[in-house]
Nucleic acid binder design. Structure first.
Lengths: 192, 192
DNA sequence: CCTATAACTAAGCGATCGGTTAGAAATAAT
DNA sequence: ATTATTTCTAACCGATCGCTTAGTTATAGG
């Protein structure tokens, strides 16, 4: 009996994600979301309950987006350490290009809301856990193919790489490419 | 002939700094600043021109604060690499304590405004330059006392340490102390 | 075709935003 | 004491905030 929605939840959510990514949480208003998502406020509230609700779903979407576009390459890697370098360089290039000038939505949100909003924190921790696992999987393969020493503490290595990627998420906005490249080079020196 | 201000600019500015540090730029309203600085809106606008004006001065204040309380120890260090470890641990403890739960105002601002506001960017770059110089000074001493190799590229090392400290600024809010300690340990492995 | 149900539009809610301004109060030179 | 100058208080500005709601439109079962 009811009328059909004339928008696709997944589609408008992706647009919301990009908007939060570009502007941050506080600086994105419901009116902005209306324009960017292409639907009316009523529809936003009936589908997501609140601005906060849209945001949390957008974080989940971003999580998925990063997995699909960046992390799967690492997971499917044959265990070459150079794949980590490629991953970092890819991130730098992305931020320095026009596509994703606002860095990493997860890191941005960690800074803006990490210590204030419980729901956001849960998403963040999930993301960082998965990122660590991803590095872990690659490192285990690298260990098997003797690209890293047999005595290496992989968990420590994975933690470290999570930290390095988040460092880039901050500094990529401020520092020039040369300094960032230096950082990547230095970072990987410890992975032996 | 004129009436005297009945507040101290430096005092109210320090309060403003702490407020921005705690809440971020967007989430701090003029009304909040009124309460926290303890002066009327009129006084804020006559002394700082705008909310943005208060913010930039607060960034300068923070810059000075960090130099006095954290970086001077590094600068005056005799060149022991352990001083770097102490510096990182000090930062972690700070964030994990009640004092400065919102990390580093510079990193926070880099994330929120770094790519949007020119004046903020200038402050940020000044801060990161000084941070790099600070590490540089320590590293040069460490080189002299043979704590690092004579062939080491100190500039690269200093850049790297800037990156590491900013990594902590993000992850300290999200990850537990154990993971952060791992990160510090791994970070310093590259400084040889 | 009628009706129940949900999705739509658009106006509007009180609260708050950054910023201004009129008028009173205080100060120091005359 | 008078006066010029500046700071103060407090009310107020239009704009925007997150969110709601009244009324209309579209849809599918009976």
């Amino acid at each position: 009996m009811p009328r059909k929605k004339n928008y696709d939840i997944d589609e408008v959510l992706e647009k919301a994600m990009k908007t939060f990514w570009q502007n941050g949480y506080e600086a994105t208003s419901i009116r902005t979301l209306e324009k960017e998502m292409g639907i009316n406020q009523f529809s936003i509230y009936s589908s997501f309950k609140s601005k906060h609700g849209v945001f949390i779903e957008a974080l989940k979407k971003y999580n998925f987006f990063v997995k699909e576009n960046f992390l799967n390459i690492l997971i499917k890697s044959e265990g070459h350490l150079s794949d980590i370098r490629t991953f970092f360089n890819q991130f730098i290039d992305n931020v320095k290009s026009e596509e994703a000038t606002n860095g990493c939505l997860m890191a941005n949100s960690a800074m803006e809301l990490g210590s204030k909003d419980r729901d956001t924190l849960i998403q963040l921790q999930g993301f960082y856990d998965f990122l660590q696992e991803t590095f872990m999987i690659l490192l285990e393969k690298a260990k098997k193919r003797n690209e890293i020493g047999q005595e290496a503490d992989l968990k420590k290595y994975a933690n470290y790489l999570v930290g390095c990627s988040q460092s880039l998420a901050v500094t990529a906005k401020i520092l020039d490419k040369e300094k960032l490249d230096d950082f990547v080079e230095m970072s990987l020196k410890s992975i032996v």
